[in-house]
Amino acid sequence: EVPFKVVAQFPYKSDYEDDLNFEKDQEIIVTSVEDAEWYFGEYQDSNGDVIEGIFPKSFVAVQG
């Protein structure tokens, strides 16, 4: 069931425009499960802007 919160276990950096880049310990709200390997989610950056994109499930852990 979406949405749910995950926390980055590792930093994720990608050159693909659709990917969500983040640092370790970033909290991310997952709004869609793309497939067995990928989530789609969002978070607010330090400027208060909402950043969204896809990212690999293996880089995050589900909270709770």
Score class of each variant (00 low, 15 high):
D15G: 12
K57W: 03
L20N: 00
F4C: 08
V33E: 06
E27V: 15
I28C: 05
Q44V: 14
I54N: 10
K24D: 02
D15K: 11
I29T: 14
V33I: 15
E17N: 10
D45F: 05
F22N: 02
Y39V: 02
P11H: 07
E23P: 06
K13M: 10
I54V: 12
V50D: 04
I28A: 00
I51E: 04
K24W: 04
E1T: 13
N21Q: 11
F59C: 15
K57V: 07
F59K: 13
G64I: 12
D35I: 06
G48E: 03
E23W: 05
D35L: 07
A8N: 01
T31H: 06
P56T: 04
S14N: 03
G48V: 00
G41V: 04
G41E: 01
D18H: 15
A61M: 12
E52L: 08
S14K: 03
K57C: 09
Q26Y: 03
F55Y: 00
E23K: 06
E37S: 08
F55V: 01
Y12E: 02
Q63G: 10
F40I: 06
D35G: 12
K5P: 05
Q63V: 15
G64P: 12
I54G: 08
I28G: 00
Q44D: 03
I28V: 04
G41T: 03
K24Y: 04
A8T: 03
V33L: 07
D45V: 07
V60L: 02
F4I: 03
S32T: 05
K57T: 05
V33S: 06
V50R: 13
F10P: 02
V6A: 05
K5W: 12
Q63R: 09
V30F: 02
V62A: 09
A8K: 00
F4V: 03
Q9H: 07
E37G: 10
E1M: 11
N21K: 08
S58L: 07
S46I: 12
K5T: 12
W38M: 09
P11A: 13
P11Y: 05
A61Q: 13
I29K: 07
S58T: 07
Y43K: 00
Q9A: 08
S46E: 12
D18P: 10
I29E: 05
S14D: 02
I54K: 15
E37V: 10
E37A: 08
E34I: 15
G53E: 00
E27R: 05
Q44K: 13
G41L: 04
F59D: 05
Q26H: 03
V50H: 08
D45P: 02
P11W: 05
V60T: 05
A36Q: 10
Q26D: 02
T31N: 05
S14I: 03
A36I: 10
E37W: 12
E17G: 10
Y43W: 05
S46D: 11
G48F: 04
D35T: 08
Y12R: 08
A61G: 09
E52W: 09
F55R: 00
P11V: 05
G64M: 11
P56Y: 05
D49W: 09
P56E: 05
W38N: 09
E37Q: 09
K13Y: 14
D25E: 07
Q63F: 11
G64H: 10
F22Y: 01
P11L: 04
D25I: 02
S32Y: 09
E23Y: 05
D25K: 05
V62D: 08
V33N: 09
I51C: 13
V2E: 03
V6H: 00
Q44S: 10
D49F: 12
F55E: 00
A8L: 04
D25V: 03
D49L: 14
K5H: 08
A36P: 13
K5V: 12
F40V: 06
K57A: 10
Y39N: 00
K57I: 08
V50Y: 07
E34W: 15
I54W: 15
I51A: 08
G53R: 01
V30P: 01
S14T: 10
Y43G: 01
I51G: 01
P56C: 06
I51T: 07
P56R: 04
F4S: 02
D25W: 11
I51K: 14
E1K: 12
Q63I: 15
S32D: 07
N47S: 08
G53S: 00
Q26C: 05
V33R: 06
E17V: 13
N21I: 06
Q44P: 06
W38R: 10
Y16V: 13
V6I: 02
E42P: 00
S32M: 09
V7G: 01
I29P: 00
G64D: 12
W38A: 03
E17K: 13
Y16F: 12
V62N: 10
E37N: 12
P3K: 06
V60F: 05
S14A: 03
L20G: 01
V6N: 00
K57N: 06
D35W: 07
D45N: 11
F10K: 12
D35Q: 07
G53T: 01
P11T: 11
F55M: 00
F10T: 06
V50T: 13
Q26T: 06
E42Q: 14
W38E: 01
D19T: 14
D45Y: 04
E27A: 07
G53I: 04
D15Y: 09
Y12V: 03
E27Q: 08
K13N: 12
E23A: 09
S46M: 11
V2T: 11
S58R: 12
K57R: 13
Y12C: 06
G64F: 09
E23N: 08
D19E: 14
G48S: 03
K57F: 08
E52F: 13
A36V: 09
I51R: 15
